[in-house]
Write a protein that binds this DNA or RNA. Structure first.
Lengths: 223, 223
DNA sequence: TTTATGTCGCCTGTCGACAGTCTACATGTT
DNA sequence: AACATGTAGACTGTCGACAGGCGACATAAA
């Protein structure tokens, strides 16, 4: 590997950014937790500059927020935020799927099919981890095939903001099958080269997800 | 004003970020121009830290880009980029206008109407500056009325990326009237409370804009 | 003239330091 | 006890300094 080329050293600020992001996703840092430049700098035994830079980048991504007193904490989406984020995601993803229905090649459609059938297997075997992974892959493939880098970046950023709730997606009434059917309908519409239908099905499917999530959140709050 | 409250001093990094952004929009910095931390720091007689922070923020917004050698330059969208950006914008704005058609109140619809009629006057009087301003306001009102902060932020960022070409929007065959008609149709659909139609009309309208822009860019390139 | 090597200056990544602000706690006052 | 004042510590915003990488130019070698 590397073809004789040397890699540029990964600067601290990038490594720190990545690490903090992983900690947020993995739950080491939870929504609302405060973060301190000095503390993180001490932990990694580096100066504040690269840490500060990493934090600023994550603020711009929306994963961290800064209040009016410059205090940094992990983003905790309000219910309104969740709705807003989903609205944006549905908008962009439905556009993506319409594009895919127009211009996907046979190979790409096969990849979608393969992911779907693997999903079916995972459901049969009750493999939760695998199911979540394959569902995510289905969405990712669609975004990839839309061949719009900017759209991909936007969707990924939006997704990362509700990442904290991703476990909940498979919780709820018969979710695995509901999700599978949703994806299958989308796949069919793509195969039929019907952009409007694909778009519509994706909207319905994502709307299911949102409704399920909000239900679970309300339940949680009541308890 | 200020209700006896003091404003927090605006930190350098924010002022610099704003200033650089304005310089990009106003053409003082042109696409492709290289920027240097030290040079800007010297100019404002401050240290590199806040300048660096401002630059990083603008990189995250997409207005500046950093190559593999950490060289900073003003973003210069390729044709492919322009298409990608427009696809994202159409997606989000059409979602916004659908939302507006559903939930705008009478007052908001009146504001749209007022902007439109002012547009008509500006066209009659041939006031180019005013026309551009009112057209922008029409779009902005729609985004505002959609009541989705995140969507608003995303659209604004996308717009800023093609800001360099904004002058061109009024150039071309009978553009002022074409634009006005497009906006009017969108307004009608909103007033009819017809989200699908509003969404569709906005897509057509923005597609006109894109086509016009691409035509002009190709013309320019040929010359 | 062309190619290789050395040197210089510019620019970014990182560091440690200082100043100003805010919080929390402590001390003093009524 | 309630309130005002003082003080210490913790953080952020900013600064100036250094080192390492890269390109440009110059000089030496072929």
């Amino acid at each position: 590997m590397n073809q004789g080329m040397l890699q540029k050293a990964i600067p601290y600020y990038e490594q720190v950014q990545q690490t903090i992001k992983e900690r947020i996703f993995s739950g080491i840092y939870e929504p609302g937790d405060r973060l301190y430049e000095v503390q993180i700098a001490r932990e990694f035994a580096i100066s504040r500059s690269p840490v500060r830079e990493a934090i600023r980048a994550l603020i711009n991504e929306g994963l961290l927020i800064m209040d009016d007193k410059s205090q940094i904490s992990v983003y905790e989406p309000s219910l309104k935020d969740v709705y807003e984020i989903y609205e944006c995601r549905v908008s962009l993803e439905s556009t993506a799927v319409a594009l895919v229905a127009q211009k996907a090649d046979e190979n790409q459609i096969l990849q979608l099919e393969k992911t779907l059938s693997e999903s079916a297997t995972a459901i049969k075997n009750g493999e939760k981890e695998e199911m979540a992974c394959l569902n995510a892959k289905f969405h990712e493939l669609i975004i990839d095939f839309s061949d719009n880098m900017r759209l991909k970046k936007l969707v990924n950023e939006l997704k990362s903001l509700t990442n904290y709730y991703r476990f909940l997606n498979l919780e709820g009434e018969d979710r695995p099958n509901v999700i599978y059917r949703g994806h299958f309908e989308i796949y069919q519409a793509i195969k039929e080269r019907n952009p409007e239908k694909a778009s519509q099905k994706l909207k319905e499917h994502t709307h299911d997800d949102l409704e399920n999530l909000v239900n679970l959140l309300n339940h949680k709050r009541e308890r």
